[in-house]
């Protein structure tokens, strides 16, 4: 069964919420309009469609567009060797997806990372705490409104952070430079 047929099957099962499969460069993406049912969709994909491997779970900050958060689930099946991508969104007010750790246990750390970097919660996650930054760090660094230079923070005896000097930094790109050497990212001290 091809990935397209698998996506079709998924759509037949969840008629109201699963969109048509969109193809881009041979990769199929399916949008799920109701984020609260993502766990059921994933369970069906795993148990009935053979997507036994969650390759990756990542999140997108849509900045000032609504809804703000999009979660992306990359699925793969070792039985049929097909890929499928699921996308679903929630608003900033909600900022919560149902956990899929009940479907694939590997989602545990993926969801913790999304929580750490974006500040999105996953309802029903068994152990939702920061995984990369330290416990008590007050910000979510991959959000669009987090400055590239970082923000100062202080956790006595745990960790601190300072904003970093970006001026002339190691990877400054200039749009519209004359040649590749002028455009490519490198150390540039402003004149």
């Amino acid at each position: 069964m091809t990935a397209k047929q698998l996506a079709k099957k998924l759509q037949r099962q969840f008629k109201e919420i699963v969109s048509d499969a969109m193809e881009f460069r041979g990769e199929l993406t399916v949008e799920i309009s109701d984020a609260s049912q993502i766990a059921e969709v994933c369970r069906y994909a795993k148990e009935e469609l053979g997507f036994d491997y969650l390759v990756d779970l990542c999140t997108i900050d849509n900045d000032d567009e609504t809804p703000r958060w999009t979660a992306v689930y990359h699925l793969y099946g070792y039985g049929h060797l097909r890929h499928l991508r699921l996308k679903t969104s929630v608003s900033e007010e909600e900022s919560e997806f149902p956990t899929v750790t009940t479907v694939w246990r590997t989602a545990d750390w993926h969801e913790r990372e999304a929580f750490d970097m974006m500040g999105i919660r996953f309802a029903g996650h068994p152990d939702l705490r920061r995984i990369l930054m330290w416990e008590g760090y007050p910000y979510y660094p991959l959000r669009k409104d987090f400055p590239l230079a970082g923000k100062p923070s202080e956790m006595p005896d745990v960790a601190f952070s300072d904003p970093i000097p970006l001026e002339g930094g190691p990877f400054v790109t200039l749009a519209g430079g004359e040649d590749a050497a002028a455009r490519e990212p490198r150390v540039r001290t402003p004149e």
């Binding site: 990369l132 660094p141 970093i164 190691p170 990877f171």
Partner: peptide, 11 residues
């Protein structure tokens, strides 16, 4: 800090 001008790296 090297090339890591980053919120996570001590300079």
């Amino acid at each position: 800090g090297g090339m890591y001008r980053s919120y996570a790296t001590l300079q």
